[in-house]
Design a protein around this nucleic acid. Sequence first.
DNA 1: TCTAAATTTGACACTTAATGTCAAGTATAA
DNA 2: TTATACTTGACATTAAGTGTCAAATTTAGA
Lengths: 103, 103
Amino acid sequence: MNVEKTTGEILRESREKKGLLLRQVAALLDIDTAILSKVERGERKATKEQIIKLADILDLRKDELLIHYLSEKIAYELLDEDVASQTLKVAEQRVKYLKAHRR
Amino acid sequence: MNVEKTTGEILRESREKKGLLLRQVAALLDIDTAILSKVERGERKATKEQIIKLADILDLRKDELLIHYLSEKIAYELLDEDVASQTLKVAEQRVKYLKAHRR
DNA sequence: TCTAAATTTGACACTTAATGTCAAGTATAA
DNA sequence: TTATACTTGACATTAAGTGTCAAATTTAGA
C-alpha cells in the first residue's frame, strides 16, 4: 500500500488518466465541482460513500481505495498524539477482540 | 494493555475503589452527573480533556488511559469495516511516514 | 420496611464540525 | 483573446457532539 501519496493525489491522477473533468466526475457523485476539487487537493475529506462511488467511476479497487482513505483519516486523527503508534497497535487488538466477541 | 475492559468500566472501577461518588467526580470535571454516568456505562464518550482530568482524579497513568480511550474510539469507528485490520496496519505506516515528514 | 442518597433515563437545548452551494476569481490552452 | 477548467472564499444547511434538567429507578442504612 502506497503510503506516500494522499488519497486526493490518487483520485486526481486516476481521473486525469481517464481524461475525465472535475465537472463530469462531480456530476456522477452528485456534488458541486468545488467539493471534488477540494477533495483532490486535500482541503476537504470525501465521505465514505463518495469514495466507493469514485472507485467505481475511476476503476480503482474498492477495498484498496477504502483502506487508503480510512487509514489517512485515522492517521490524521492521531497525528498530534505522541501515543499514536501505541494507540494503533492496541486498536488492532481491540478490533480483533471485538470482532471475535460480537454481540 | 487490557483490551477486554471498556474505558467506562475502568473509570467506574477506579472511582469506586477510591470511594468517590459520581456527583463528586462530575463536579471536579465540571459536568453534570448524568454525563459521567453515561460515560462509565459506555452510553456516551468522554472528551479527551475529561479523560486527562480523570486520570489525574483517579490516579491512573495518563498515557495508558489515553491509549485505552483513543484505541477504543478508533476500534469502534472501524468495527463495521471488513478492512479494519488492514486499515490499522496501513495507518501505522502512515503515522510513521507523516511524523517523519512533518511539515 | 422506609426513606434518603445515588444513580439512571430520556427529552431537549446548545455548540461545533461536516457537508454542501454559489458566484467570482484565476489559470490553461486553443 | 476568449472559452473552458479549475480554485477560492463566503455562506447555508445538516448532522454529530456535548451538555442540562427533572423525573424515575435503584441501592443501602437506620
